[in-house]
Design a protein around this nucleic acid. Structure first.
Lengths: 398, 398
DNA sequence: GTGACTTTGTGCCGACACTAAACAAAATAC
DNA sequence: GTATTTTGTTTAGTGTCGGCACAAAGTCAC
């Protein structure tokens, strides 16, 4: 008597995000009867996705103690991959955002995207062979806007890739070449997305964005600024995957010219290079601009010139965030990269600027938080790969 | 043998928006079997919401001709109300966006919002008494941002209302006072929203926005600029109803100061007053600014000064729209008010500016269309009032 | 016209996800 | 030790929908 197919996906997502620690909570969250929740949990356990503790946890409260629901420790995984300016990283990620195995691979990124995509997939496939875990999908994060439905990288700025590189196709081909299995008998099909978008998804599921209904993420990488919006738990990437290109909001009308044709864009006014320049430093070639900017902020914040530069960047960032608040009206903002470091250095200043410059900020200001997840783009790539399973476990696992 | 409760809402919405002219199309659109679609149609007919033609329409194509599905002509209605700078308007609106009866009431708007809300509701209640139609809900459009979940009007700019007027409460109280019945036994509860938001909803259901998945609307009233976004058929109004306050995007860094503290905002650079000023006209007090701007554009577009002013405003509007395209990535843009008139005057110029200044505009540009619906805010208020019925007809009607 | 074909609509049955309600289990409360 | 509270399971039943066969109403070919 197998019951609960319709509620299976939502139930798995609740356990996955840690919002259903017991069957009793699951019952309440799903809005179904105890019988249904029990059947659903039993079926997810039979599928090998979750485990139900044999012995109830320490009671503490009144009534029959409940058995703990958790993600199955030895359960299936997805292959997660990330490509960034300094190289790549591959990992196996289980449900609950758990990193099961990682293969950091630092190297210079070649101009031919297929080489590095092959390499990162091969690294992931190696992890699969070592661990022997079942693989249900694969996701890749790239530092570029990814156009839908083509799956092409439009502006791989930090990489020396050609614009329009067909990253999804290359990823899927690499998965087939490396023999990475999908949920069925065929090879896995690769999910590919922008790194900031995927990081936002990860933060929403497992990090500082939990529980937000309208989550805005803004982050700097090495150059430029990326944005992402998670609406009701789903990534909003626009009609062709190109939404939240927030880098060209005007934040300094008299500012630097930008390649977009305007001046004083968020992109060129708040990225690591802008900060280093404002502080009067000439960036060196040894480590990444982001690293140099972070180091400067950490070690020399007492220096008035550094502090003034930070405040200048914060003011401009605040102007940009205020513009986004007026347009998107999020209930939470999460910052990553250099912006996160700037928030940590002086949280009040940024919050004050945003509240002052957004239309309704004075009545009820938006919480602005640092991101909390390590490797959030990587975890986000895994989240995207898990999505089909979370939507309909039975069809995928059958 | 009542079947098809789950698909009832989607089916009604398909008939309501004219996307399901026959049961065969309904079957395909719902993705169910013919049996289910037939049962659903029968139940909606039994509820008095739709009619199924007794005789099949002229065949034309091969196979058995299908019976026509349409909105029930004498079916229930909702009370729709709109308040604008020049007064108010009330109407009864049936399914399909059909205006069944209207009561235009022009007058000056008093500083006390409850007076005019009482008046517009009383006008609507009069229509209900005259026609004897069953009323299932009520919606009100106001020219102000409406904060959620409070239902207060934050910036009733064109009206002399106090900021923060509790319009939803006043509306609901007026409905009770006037004895407007809701779907159950109690009085109707009023739905209240910003006029541009509601207009966007109406255009999406019955106008130029049909079929768009990510629809952006931008419109000028008399002063300022409003925006709205319809995502997958649902209005996106942000976490507290304040999204798409697009008026403070910077479109002219050296421009006029704005009350928001910045300069050159879309609000002050592209509204009717900006156009009249740019054309060297001093606006008179006799008709509304919007009317004067439209008249000038229609009658004197040949005048080089007027044409240059129009092009200036179009260029600035294009810059603002390009910024929104970068952030929202819509698949269609609809313009209303003066912006609509400017688009009509020179469609190519605006499209070119948006394509040129948006990041990905050159590869695939966004269609920009004029709005097509008369009284779209009013119809939108009705749409919002119909929403509970469209979501779950059985619960509302019993 | 007549028959073949195409498309639409309906009746019947079964699958199945879920509810309802009674029962059972395991803790705390007094 | 008994009552109470909360959790979990069993059983029966309900309602929605898919599958399938059949019927209806047109066009097309000749």
């Amino acid at each position: 008597m197998e019951r609960g197919r319709g509620a299976l996906g939502p139930a798995l997502e609740l356990v996955h995000t840690g919002r259903a620690p017991t069957r009793a909570v699951l019952t309440a969250e799903l809005g179904v009867t105890r019988a249904t929740a029990g059947a659903v949990a039993a079926e997810l356990e039979a599928l090998g996705l979750i485990t139900v503790d044999a012995h109830p946890a320490a009671a503490g409260s009144q009534g029959r103690p409940s058995h703990r629901l958790s993600v199955a420790p030895g359960g299936p995984v997805v292959l997660a991959a990330q490509i960034h300016a300094d190289g790549f990283r591959a990992a196996l990620v289980g449900l609950g955002g758990r990193m099961v195995a990682t293969a950091p691979g630092c190297m210079t990124v070649p101009a031919d995207p297929s080489h590095i995509i092959d390499a990162v997939v091969e690294a992931g496939a190696g992890l699969l062979r070592e661990t022997g875990r079942r693989c249900l999908g694969a996701g890749l994060a790239v530092p570029s806007a990814v156009a839908e439905p083509d799956g092409t990288a439009l502006n791989p700025l930090h990489l020396s890739w050609p614009a329009g590189a067909p990253v999804r196709r290359l990823f899927t081909e690499a998965l087939a070449k490396a023999g990475v299995p999908g949920p069925g008998e065929g090879p896995a099909t690769g999910v590919t997305g922008n790194d900031v978008n995927l990081a936002a998804l990860a933060e929403h599921r497992h990090g500082a964005g939990r529980g937000a209904r309208h989550l805005l993420c803004v982050a700097t990488g090495h150059r430029g600024v990326g944005g992402a919006l998670v609406l009701d738990g789903r990534l909003h990437s626009g009609s062709s995957g190109l939404a939240l290109e927030v880098g060209h909001l005007t934040v300094n009308p008299a500012g630097l010219p930008c390649h977009c044709g305007s001046r004083g864009c968020l992109d060129v006014e708040t990225d690591p290079l802008a900060f280093l320049t404002a502080a009067g430093r000439t960036p060196g070639p040894e480590v990444s601009l982001l690293q140099q900017a972070r180091d400067l902020l950490r070690t020399e914040y007492a220096d008035p010139a550094v502090r003034a530069a930070a405040e200048l960047i914060v003011d401009r960032l605040g102007l940009g965030l205020a513009g986004l608040v007026n347009i998107l009206n999020p209930d939470r903002i999460i910052l990553g990269g250099l912006h996160r470091a700037l928030l940590d250095a002086d949280p009040e200043r940024l919050r004050a600027v945003v509240a002052d410059r957004s239309l309704w900020g004075r009545s009820g200001s938006v919480p602005i938080l640092p991101c909390t997840l390590d490797f959030n783009s990587l975890i986000g790539a895994a989240e995207a790969a898990w999505q089909p399973v979370l939507d309909d476990p039975l069809t995928v696992l059958g």
